[in-house]
Design a protein around this nucleic acid. Structure first.
Lengths: 328, 328
DNA sequence: GTGAAAGCGCTAACAG
DNA sequence: CTGTTAGCGCTTTCAC
């Protein structure tokens, strides 16, 4: 708990001089510096970052708000984002908003109270106006938070197209896509619109089902998948997020369908679970390293009051797995 | 950027009074309070948390150091830990230390510089003495960091026993266990010692392989699994972490082994990937909610200088999946 | 080169 | 009940 004053006293100098060696600013006589460094060592001195923060008016902390850090896709983004931010000199504060709560508002409030220099919003539930009122750095990850708030998202439209075209090319005749609830609008919904559009364009039968919100609990996805099978036992192609797709894979296989002979399944995200299963899920992969890089770059630019691009789209691609028919 | 001074001036009162309504301490005349609240509203005032932190000498931030937040097991612990800490009034700062770097030391330094009130160490690489020198709150998650540093870990010994006994009961005769590198000692290594001990006790052949460190990249686990198959094509029981076990499942199945008829596989952790695969991995489940709860409770107690239990063991259990023979 | 002093925004003690 | 003041620990002019 030694303070800069203690060090100064111990070394027989003023606090200003200690501060100078601490920050390597201005001139300090070599032997004075030595004495100060010795004093710091002896007192086991560590500069108090809170005091520095107060003076500089920044904490070097960026907040990341997400539905659930345990979700494989968000976990991956968080990992890369933390890495990128770290390299830029920032620490990452995370906040899950799995259940309905006041967490989001509190998180935004922390930003306003200067606990964080900026935040990346990977989830949202308030009205656009609320975000636009906030003068501090905010970047949306897959969320459109207002006209002047940057948003980074995958090219979901292309993702939907790639999936639809692939299934159609395989000769599938009755497709099914499962989407999350549309309580809030996010760019990712575009993939389903595009998927449906293309199916209609090719005259392929398409059913779109909106699923209830369920906190990413895989067990409940399994129940949902069972219901889906009951209602749509004869579809021959399914498109959904990795998690839901995996659940459907289990449900349809359990009822005797052979994957991919009878049913092709394409996941969306490209998270770890598409690789660890014995039957690898064919999926549309979101470029998480790139997303994280852009998020970090944008939020840091905002913090430094540098100009930023408001809309950034990250490319996606289809990765072959074992749940679609091999291409000829 | 309005400060408490601006509010005071605007409301025609002293800063002390404003502070009083801010913190609901002491008496403030109703109409004075109204005037102040109106001023705060008008100026869009938000108290500066950095200044408060400096005064109170705490940030209400707890750090969580882990190998990789994208790893399904660590992600799960992080999720629960964040929830627990949030309920206790703390925010969670995460730090990955995937690659060799100075990150760990920097993280510890942040603790000493009062950027965080305490940290939970889910990874470590320094010598015990380094941690013991640090006077600030540190709790080890599956890491013994010193004689006076609390450590919360699963009952790994029991985990190893449950796995061994199950495989032996199935009549398996040649077991194989894959362990991580032993560059640092962690309680989790006990499961392998116990596994081996029990195999010997029952006279069952057991091979233990130490794997190289690979940053939890599943693709490299697959390569390793291939090598393992080459070297141990005739084992009939495998025990390893979920990730490695899943990779082995793929490798052995690919080479024609039928799971679980020919080979039984038991994973360790009980993470999401054991549920999402079409062939669910039988596994030893670590009680992540409970672990997180204990971690949060312990680190908070330390922050408040309350007494804590130095060693806490969390129970584990075996969860039936599809990669072991059904019990009679 | 270096010390003294002001101030970052807030809280709490102390007079009135 | 409320205004004034002295710090929290640090950085940064500004004289000496």
């Amino acid at each position: 708990m030694a303070s800069i004053k203690d060090v100064a006293k111990h070394a027989g100098v003023g606090v200003g001089t200690v501060s100078r060696v601490l920050n390597n600013t201005g001139y300090v006589a070599p032997d004075t510096r030595d004495r100060i460094e010795a004093a710091m060592m002896e007192l086991d001195y560590h500069p108090n970052e809170m005091a520095r923060n107060l003076f500089r008016n920044r904490t070097n902390i960026i907040g990341f708000l997400i539905p659930d850090i345990a979700h494989p896709f968000f976990g991956l983004v968080a990992r890369h984002l933390e890495m990128e931010l770290y390299d830029k000199g920032y620490k990452t504060l995370i906040c899950n908003i799995t259940q309905k709560s006041t967490r989001e508002r509190e998180f935004l409030d922390m930003l306003r109270r200067h606990m964080m220099d900026g935040i990346v919003m990977g989830a949202h539930s308030l009205d656009i106006e609320e975000y636009e009122k906030i003068p501090d750095p905010i970047v949306g990850f897959d969320r459109v938070l207002g006209n002047n708030i940057p948003c980074i998202a995958s090219d979901h439209k292309k993702g939907g197209r790639l999936a639809a075209e692939r299934l159609i090319k395989e000769g599938r005749k009755h497709l099914l896509q499962l989407a999350g609830t549309k309580t809030v609008t996010t760019p990712s919904l575009e993939r389903h619109q595009e998927f449906e559009r293309i199916c209609r364009e090719y005259g392929v039968k398409i059913d779109s089902v909106e699923m209830p919100w369920n906190d990413f609990d895989f067990k409940s996805y399994l129940y949902i998948a069972e219901d889906i099978y009951e209602e749509y036992p004869h579809v021959d192609g399914i498109f959904s997020t990795d998690m839901v797709a995996s659940a459907c894979l289990r449900a349809y296989a359990k009822h005797g369908a052979h994957i991919p002979t009878d049913v092709s399944i394409i996941g969306y995200d490209g998270s770890l679970i598409t690789e660890t299963a014995s039957l690898r899920l064919t999926c549309i992969v979101q470029n998480t390293p790139r997303i994280a890089q852009q998020l970090a770059e944008t939020v840091c630019a905002l913090v430094k009051k540098q100009p930023v691009t408001l809309h950034q789209q990250i490319d996606v691609y289809l990765r072959e797995g074992d749940t679609t028919l091999p291409q000829l």
